[in-house]
């Protein structure tokens, strides 16, 4: 689980990028707290060939990336 809450652009995507490049996980969960981060991570994940789903959890969003 990557916790990218409260981090400004583009840090959440950088954290996902580092994990993808380092470990190439089949599934990855990311917690963010803004819709902008959901959009940015989703665009990056699609470019890397991941499917993305997200759910809202209070004020947070939890994204699940999977191949």
């Amino acid at each position: 689980m990557i916790d990218a809450r409260g981090l400004s652009c583009p840090m959440p995507v950088v954290m996902v990028q580092k994990e993808v490049q380092k470990n190439a996980p089949q599934e990855l969960t990311v917690r963010v707290d803004s819709m902008v981060c959901v959009e940015n991570i989703t665009r990056y994940a699609h470019l890397q060939g991941y499917e993305v789903q997200y759910t809202q959890d209070g004020g947070d969003f939890v994204l699940t990336l999977h191949k």
């Binding site: 583009p10 995507v13 950088v14 990028q17 940015n40 665009r43 990056y44 470019l47």
Partner: peptide
Amino acid sequence: MRDAVMFRD
């Protein structure tokens, strides 16, 4: 420019 360079976005 940042996203284009960093993420090809």
